[in-house]
Design a protein around this nucleic acid. Structure first.
Lengths: 169, 169
DNA sequence: TGATAATTGTTATGGACCATATCAAATATC
DNA sequence: GATATTTGATATGGTCCATAACAATTATCA
């Protein structure tokens, strides 16, 4: 180590900073960190997911599960590979996810008559009902919160920039 | 393979869509998914981290490791608990991370003389040098790419909105 | 003072998520 | 018809995240 292992007492041992008060522990300086897109992006994403989970607590739906239901509803008759890949989920990892949704009777695997290897995915009636309620919760509790925080026009701009990053970066 | 045969029999089974062409497997409709902030946010975050890792390949620094080095540099003399908590890292999980950085001689734990329980964190000379190179790489290869994609003013607006979400959501 | 509580770094552990290899069944290809 | 490919599935390992518990040290306060 090229560090004088004698950094003690004198200089800065969390003591000789602003000292006094000993109140809230003296917040650290984020410095350049708050300008790093990746850092802020990750923090924001965690907060959004956290809020999403709170809004969906009554329905017990994670963001990933919600996205699956949305995609299956919009694209009925597709198989597991197609749904999983467009969501960026690897087929092996998609199995347990579907097991969960199917055990809760939210969607169903139907053996295709054309290609008996593949399972066609469909929402059950309960799945459609739950998804409808989920959409309402997301709109009124989750996305509404964003409009309140950023304003509708900023929210749209944010979405546009994030899409651009997601697709063209 | 293309969906040439499709599984009709039932009304909509991947056939009654755009049909024709049978080319690249007929992309699925994202639908409302592309309007879900959480979804787009997560996708963008993954892309940004992915790009970050590519830019840092020569230095072998992950986003989390980079953030630790940045924070330690900006706040010398702090202990593990302080650094970890402001990064949202739990103390137990921070141990292995520091073991890694310390084994690479990028930072060092120094037993505090004021409170012999705590380890004060400092960057080694090598750590400072590596961090300096990392900053340059991030600025010229990573963040520059964003300015190119969004424009400086949009990039600033994006950062502002993400910070707002991260802090006030 | 001395007994008790709180803090720091650490280990152990389990869960969630992600990635790869591999398999049997079914299908495609030649 | 022999071989290769695709689909869903299992097994497995890695990483990240969260909780409980522990020894050493320090703070609290009766």
């Amino acid at each position: 180590m090229t560090v004088s292992k004698t950094a003690e007492k004198s200089a800065d041992t969390a003591k000789g900073r602003k000292d006094a008060a000993e109140g809230p522990g003296e917040a650290l300086q984020l410095g350049e960190l708050s300008e790093q897109l990746g850092y802020v992006l990750k923090r924001a994403q965690l907060k959004v997911f956290e809020n999403f989970l709170r809004c969906m607590a009554s329905l017990q739906l994670t963001p990933a599960q919600f996205s699956v239901l949305l995609l299956v509803e919009k694209n009925p008759g597709r198989n597991q590979t197609e749904i999983a890949s467009t969501l960026g989920i690897l087929r092996p990892n998609f199995v347990a996810m579907l097991d969960n949704l199917e055990s809760r009777d939210l969607c169903a695997r139907i053996r295709s008559t054309n290609d008996r290897r593949s399972h066609i995915l469909v929402l059950t009636d309960k799945g459609k009902a739950v998804l409808a309620r989920a959409k309402k919760l997301v709109a009124t509790k989750h996305e509404a919160r964003l409009n309140e925080l950023l304003g509708p026009s900023n929210r749209e701009a944010l979405l546009g920039m994030l899409s651009k990053i997601a697709n063209e970066f």
